[in-house]
Write a protein that binds this DNA or RNA. Structure first.
Lengths: 251, 251
DNA sequence: ACAAAAGTGTTCGTGCTACACCCATGG
DNA sequence: CCATGGGTGTAGCACGAACACTTTTGT
């Protein structure tokens, strides 16, 4: 499923130093910021994590990079992002993928010019993809040394995710298919970085018809407690749920 | 100020049909959706308009295109957008410019592959730039035949503008430096496409500290009426004024 | 019985809409 | 003094935050 060999071979493709044709235009690359909420340390609250791989070769050897690579001739950006991610994770685990902004400073990476289109990818909390040896999840709040402008890209992606959690159903891509409200609260807390009240979260998502009860319940933990009702998201694609914060059309 | 000659010469650059090196990667182009609120027909309500130029040559001869062109070697996307716009309008009139999404379908234009980064540009209502002969403002609600995917780009830009009018001070780039509340309401109505209540608009923008009174007033029109107080925007750069519609951090 | 976890109800504040009412000017 | 347009006040609603209270389980 995970093919390290392919990944190693494309590493050469990342920054070709020889046979560089100065007449050729800039290279277009696609980079994905893939987030997952994970329990990094056991019995600690879950954290928002991002998928990074460690560069074995120059430039920026040893630093951590976003997965991605060159745009192919017969694919659009979204397809390219999916294809490149396939080298790092089982892409079926990536439940949502959307375009973020483009980084185009002429000197953003050494060597030939590269224009980077970035994507936001989301993996549900119960997904556990196998990873190549050079690839790992890192807590967004505690990033290692990142290559080039990749750190900025991660923080842009996080800001976008936080915004969309407020006015869309985007959490469907971070949550398991069936979940208790406490699980969902933990996901929101990790992604937003601040405490969220379970009660209000449920009411908001119910009113907006984002989630619905499945009628089933989960058994309580070893310390007892009332069994939790299980919920699911109504949609499996992005939907805006609160379009107008202000200045709505007259009704 | 407006140099038609330069524009004509770059028209060749738009779709080079000869000397095409198949080994070269895709061309990166920048396209700008520039909006202005304008009184298209006298004594009719003002409308949101977009700047388009009519193609004199194949492909898509006669259809209307967004201003733009190839990304240069030593410029980033934003600089490129500004440079390309300089061929169509006095760029000093463009008060705001921001990145929108990238269009990357391999077959989106005939001939060599072109990847298009789109931008949203805004010109204030009192700006009246001279235009080249092939260039004109068109009401967004009544677009002519547009080239390739440019129609989609315009509607994406409009959606983005409408969203940002709700939660940012972006209207500063559409309004004159000093304005009455009725003028501002007209601008909001045109940009949003629905009726906005003057009273509430003022209260919302005041509470969010987006606008402030200048202390001056405008003389009433020929039919009389109370003189209008004049206001101005506090900032001349984009600012988010209502970050969290819901799920705010506890405070 | 008691602790733990989940779910419900109630109060409160805030921000926005809608609409009635008051003010200033020209004819 | 009336028509016209601008400005203010107020009632009501919708939504979300906070928190106390009830329900259901395990030990």
């Amino acid at each position: 499923m995970i093919e390290n060999v392919i990944h190693r071979s494309t590493a050469t493709d990342e920054h070709p130093r020889v046979g560089l044709d100065p007449a050729a235009g800039p290279v277009h690359e696609v980079l994905s910021v893939v987030f997952q909420v994970r329990e990094q340390v056991a019995h600690r609250p879950a954290e928002l994590c991002v998928l990074l791989w460690q560069r074995a070769l120059a430039p920026a050897r040893g630093t951590w990079s976003l997965p991605g690579g060159r745009l192919g001739d017969d694919e659009n950006l979204m397809d390219s992002a999916r294809r490149q991610l396939a080298e790092k994770v089982d892409v079926r685990e990536v439940r949502h993928l959307e375009q973020l902004s483009v980084f185009s400073e002429p000197g953003r990476v050494p060597g030939e010019r590269r224009i980077a289109s970035t994507f936001l990818g989301l993996v549900p909390i119960d997904g556990d993809p196998r990873l190549p040896v050079d690839t790992a999840w890192h807590a967004v709040a505690d990033l290692p040394d990142t290559a080039f402008d990749h750190g900025t890209m991660v923080s842009h992606a996080r800001t976008r995710l936080a915004a969309k959690l407020s006015y869309t159903n985007i959490a469907f891509a971070l949550a398991p298919t069936e979940f208790s409200m406490s699980t969902l609260r933990d996901i929101y807390c990790a992604a937003l970085g601040y405490q969220v009240d379970t009660t209000n979260l449920q009411r908001v998502l119910n009113r907006r018809r984002v989630i619905e009860s499945t009628g089933r319940t989960a058994p309580p933990g070893p310390t007892g407690g009332r069994p939790a009702a299980l919920y699911k998201f109504r949609d499996t694609a992005l939907r805006v749920t609160d379009e107008f914060a202000a200045l709505r059309p007259p009704g």
